[in-house]
Design a protein around this nucleic acid. Structure first.
Length: 786
DNA sequence: CAGTGAGCGAGCTTCCGCTTGACTT
């Protein structure tokens, strides 16, 4: 029997709060939402005012049963879910499902998990805000309607199992459009002049740059020629104080960006590690859009800063959230205890904690005081001056612990420390260089920079950024990929020792690592949706409906009215599209095959993008799959024709035919029934039989080494060596071997016991990726029999 | 894991947001 039952959303939070409240209070968690729209077609009764049919989520039945029991035994139930739209809805669903009574149910909210905040909340209970709940219902229902009416159109018109939605479809669109920008970008170039001078006494050197750039190489060389006979004089020195301010403490989005820039973590990894730090009590909640810090936190940071760095480094303050879509139910992400400079269970957690600690501490530290110096150096024979810039730090302030990273490497800044200089001083030229510089297209998105963009557009929430990124990759709309880039020539000219030498140099361009690229399906679906559902694909759509949700929350408009006025025209578009739109295959004429004179076309086939020689009705038409990194939109005729040169027979080895081709996992060599991947540094078209033999032998050796042990008792049982060390393979299932067991000494009985302990052999479920493949195989076999 | 690319066409897929485990390679 408990007097008070408090329900929060997260179990870690429940644990902390229970400590604050004492023994009269039992604190439990709902583990987020407990109820959702039913799965199938009867989730929303559209005819009947969009009446939602909610069911308790299958994985929540246990939690709900327990909460129900506790609620019945309690005098008062305190609904303490988050203070935002979703949190209010969670409270309402709890009220409904647990069968609570108005007179002993109290709704409370707090933005920070501190004792005063919670005590204050208990003193100021209120009722469930039904208008806010309605806003959430509108949000939920709109998302379901959009997602579950658009996706089936894609199944019919593009490909089965695809998906579309308010958030994901726009995320893909961003990537598709950025890719087109990059591919259509016409780079132009100009010429940058940099110079290095010595002081007359040769004590120090100074780097300077011409602030303007020249449009042509001729102008640049003319300038160097003028400089050849010039003298160089300091005309002006300007010294200005400047300040740098620390960045605000982390939100989910900025944490993901910074962990990506500084630690190279994908967003999902950052969230996983942050979750662990949170559960261990090291940091505050990691899904937040707020930069707010509690008073306790600000005080804690200040005393830690004073203790570690001194009083002059402390500058307590709070930040305001710029993003208007923020709901601010939580604090910023910060260490729970600032005195812990390090925390975490493994190296990766430790690094993330350190980042959070530094960022939070820095946000409470003094501004850095700088002194910027700008020096103008005249060139006597030219009507232009060079500029040298220097920066010195007078007081480091927050820079002592932390500086925010940047997304793009900018041109190297010449903000060195300048030596003492005086106006009128003459300088000696060491050398002056003109270099051709090319303009760059907007950079492709990384996972983290896409999150940043989505947040700017108000699309998605802290809890969904990482899942959205993973969904659009899982659906095959987007892939995270690398590009080796290509070389480009550029012109340079150097003036040194009174002579000008001109030369052509090369640089590497277009190198990409872990960037998001659209696939052909992603491009196709984006174009299709943009054509038929302009409104949903509009970058401002979410912001617009958010405004309406706010109006619902303020009681200015009923939620069914809002949904009706959205749904009526939307559903009409759905019907029209279903009835009139052609099935899309992304067909494109690439060119003509010079050998046969037949057209070469590209399109999306059942198994992905392909190129074809010959018309559809041609008996002898030929197909070839595109290689990874190639797209229908950008493939050239030359590249397409290349694809038909495979599979290629290399020769014979040990009386078996050896051929090379490209499969799902890249280039491979086939030798009898053996497949061996071709290493990345070998070209599939140039590989010789000697190279092939080497690869084959290496593969055979690896296959033998892979097999650690077999058992006479059961030939299905094998001990294999995998990427993560030894494991047990049995009837298509894999099982772990405990670390303290020596794999090659396992007996049959021990192995079977391990299998049993780990749940035994299960029928392989038709996983999403597997099912269609298995089906295709079965079909291919059926065909072969005929 | 790997060479297909239509077609009989069953029955399935799918959204966004709130939370953690329970899984496997």
């Amino acid at each position: 029997m408990t007097k008070n039952l408090v329900i929060v959303e997260s179990p870690a939070k429940a644990k902390t709060i229970e400590k604050f409240l004492g023994k009269d209070y039992t604190v439990r968690s709902s583990f987020g939402h407990i109820r959702d729209l039913d799965k199938g077609d009867n989730a929303i009764d559209i005819q009947n005012g969009f009446k939602p049919n909610y069911i308790v989520s299958p994985d929540k039945t246990k939690v709900v049963a327990e909460l129900k029991k506790l609620a019945k035994e309690s005098e008062t139930v305190w609904l303490a879910s988050d203070e935002d739209r979703e949190g209010e809805a969670i409270s309402w669903h709890l009220f409904e499902v647990l069968g609570l009574k108005e007179d002993n149910t109290k709704r409370i909210v707090f933005h920070e998990i501190t004792k005063p905040a919670i005590e204050n909340a208990i003193k100021n209970p209120r009722k469930i805000d039904k208008a806010l709940v309605d806003a959430q219902q509108a949000r939920r229902i709109l998302d379901r309607l959009v997602g579950f009416e658009l996706s089936p159109i894609l199944w019919k018109k593009v490909k089965p199992s695809l998906s579309a939605g308010r958030v994901q479809s726009v995320a893909v669109r961003l990537i598709v459009e950025r890719e087109r920008e990059v591919n259509n970008f016409n780079s132009d170039s100009d010429y940058k002049i940099v110079a290095e001078f010595n002081k007359r006494d040769h004590s120090k050197s100074i780097k300077a740059e011409l602030p303007q750039r020249f449009k042509s190489e001729k102008e640049a060389i003319d300038f160097l020629t003028a400089a050849q006979d010039s003298s160089f004089k300091i005309e002006n020195i300007e010294v200005k104080p400047a300040q740098r301010k620390a960045a605000a403490p982390f939100t989910t989005s900025t944490l993901q960006q910074e962990a990506s820039r500084k630690l190279g973590y994908p967003v999902a990894k950052t969230m996983l590690l942050a979750q662990k730090l949170y559960e261990a009590g090291h940091i505050t909640y990691m899904r937040t859009d707020s930069v707010n810090l509690s008073e306790t936190a600000i005080k804690g940071a200040a005393s830690e800063i004073i203790r570690s760095y001194g009083k002059e480094y402390s500058m307590p303050r709070n930040y305001t959230t710029k993003n208007s879509s923020a709901q601010e139910a939580h604090e910023a992400i910060r260490p729970t205890y600032f005195e812990n400079h390090t925390a975490g269970a493994d190296a990766q957690e430790v690094k993330l904690y350190e980042l959070i600690w530094k960022r939070s501490i820095a946000s409470q530290m003094a501004n850095a005081e700088l002194e910027r110096t700008v020096v103008d150096i005249s060139v006597s024979k030219a009507n232009k001056s060079l500029r040298a810039e220097g920066e010195i730090i007078k007081f480091d302030g927050f820079l002592k612990v932390y500086l925010e990273g940047k997304d793009e490497e900018e041109d190297e800044e010449n903000s060195d420390i300048l030596p003492p200089l005086s106006v009128g001083e003459m300088l000696d030229l060491v050398q002056m260089t003109s270099e051709q510089k090319f303009s760059r297209a907007a950079p492709r998105y990384t996972e983290a920079s896409l999150v940043k963009k989505l947040e700017e557009l108000g699309i998605g929430r802290p809890s969904t950024y990482a899942p959205t990124i993973s969904t659009i990759q899982k659906r095959g709309y987007v892939i995270k990929d690398n590009r080796e880039g290509s070389t480009r020539q550029y012109q340079t000219a150097v003036l040194k020792g009174g002579k000008i030498s001109v030369k052509t140099a090369t640089e590497r361009v277009g190198v990409e690592k872990n960037k998001l690229f659209p696939t052909d399906i992603g491009t196709l679906v984006t174009d299709f949706l943009s054509e038929h559902f302009k409104q949903i694909m509009d970058y401002g759509f979410t912001a617009m409906v958010e405004k309406e949700f706010d109006e619902i929350a303020q009681g200015m408009i009923g939620w069914t009215k809002m949904i009706t006025s959205f749904y009526t025209p939307f559903h009409k578009d759905v019907d029209t599209t279903l009835a009139t739109a052609e099935r899309v295959k992304g067909e494109r004429v690439i060119g003509t095959d010079p050998e046969t004179g037949k057209p070469v076309t590209g399109r999306i086939g059942r198994y992905g993008p392909l190129v074809q020689i010959g018309e559809a009705e041609d008996e002898d038409k030929k197909f070839a799959s595109l290689r990874s990194g190639q797209t229908l939109e950008t493939i050239t005729l030359e590249q397409a024709l290349e694809l038909f040169k495979l599979p290629r027979v290399i020769g014979e080895y040990k009386n078996e035919k050896v051929s090379a081709a490209i499969g799902r996992f890249g280039p491979y060599i086939k030798f009898g029934s053996l497949f061996a991947s071709i290493p990345k540094d070998r070209d599939i078209f140039e590989i010789t039989i000697t190279d092939a033999a080497e690869i084959i032998e290496a593969k055979i050796k690896a296959e033998i080494e892979k097999l650690i042990k077999t058992f006479p008792e059961d030939k299905d049982l094998e001990i294999l060596k995998g990427r993560w060390g030894p494991y047990i393979a049995y009837k298509k299932n894999n099982f772990k071997i405990p670390k303290d067991t020596v794999a090659d000494q396992l007996t049959y009985a021990q192995a079977m016991e391990l299998i049993d302990k780990q749940g035994g052999v299960k029928e392989k479920k038709g996983g999403k990726a597997e099912a269609p493949k298995a089906k295709a195989k079965a079909k291919a076999k059926a065909k072969a029999k005929k």
